[in-house]
Amino acid sequence: MADSQTEARKRSGLAVLLIMLVSLLPLVVQHGYVLRILIMISYFAVASYGWDVIGGYAGQLSLGQAAFFSIGAYAAASAYLIWKLSPAVGALAGVGLAALLALGLGSLVLRLRGPYFTLSTLAAAEVVRILLLHFKSITGGAEGRVIPYTGFNLSALQFATDRPYYYIAVALLALAIWTSYQVSRSRLGFQLAAIRNDEDAAESVGINLMSAKVKAFVISACLTALAGAFYVIYDRYIDPYSTCSSEVSVKILLIALVGGRRSIWGPLLGAVLLIPLTELTNAYFASIRAGASMVVYSIILIIVVLYAPDGLIRVLRRRPSRGAVTLQPGPKGRNSHASA
């Protein structure tokens, strides 16, 4: 008992320290480039925490997160450009829309297991992209949407420097980490763990598979849409090919994979490493030979996946995390028989 109290005190002290460090960081970092990287780390981590709920905790490999990311982004942009609303309102609408999509789509495709589910999420993202290309009057079609910079405007979330964006991004990141933490220790989290290990066994002990999986999918969609909305507010340009592509889905997934799934710090660690890594390999190797940067990047990824298949967070930690014990994948044979 005393042990857990000191532990808790130590943790809250650490948290306060972390918050102070994070909020003071932009005062030290005057370099706009570094600040931009920090912001990118934050919003990609948010999207990745979103993926982790369905892909990590629930063990359902989604390759369609770009759909939710785009819905968040397009909602924020359209609310501002067409209906003259604050993009913050649009962001909330986008989160709502993404939740609805996840509910509808999830009710259908979460009945599928393993690769069948993965393929249908991939297809869903393609469908969303085609819709974005089709409804030109709302989305701008292939030409995309530009949010012109009109000077400081609080309701439009336009700021002259990157610092306010940094704080917004960090706040969103905190929300994402909190969500991950809540999921991991909630009833839902335990249900998901059971499902992940063996769907049939989970069902036999009375877990409502669909209800739990759909809930996870909705939470996942909300976080990812939030990241998308922030992305357009910050970068001010979207088009269907750059925001709703499988590249975006894979990037989101890789961050969690490299950092560590089902972990409160995994996606953040993944983003902290991968986002600067993409950029640094580009800065250093791009001039050597076209594509060299991507080769180096890929080699590093391969090494990580080979030596730390459960994510770097588990390698860096001395003891395996609480979740790690139940990490072993369930008996695959039985699962595939059941779904066949």
Binding site: H31, G32, S242
Partner: peptide, 20 residues
């Protein structure tokens, strides 16, 4: 020379790097 690659969010970062 900055290699923007064909990824737009990357290209923004590369532009920022050149400028900074």
């Amino acid at each position: 020379i900055g290699d923007t690659t064909s990824d737009y969010s990357q290209s923004v970062l590369v532009a920022q790097r050149l400028v900074n």
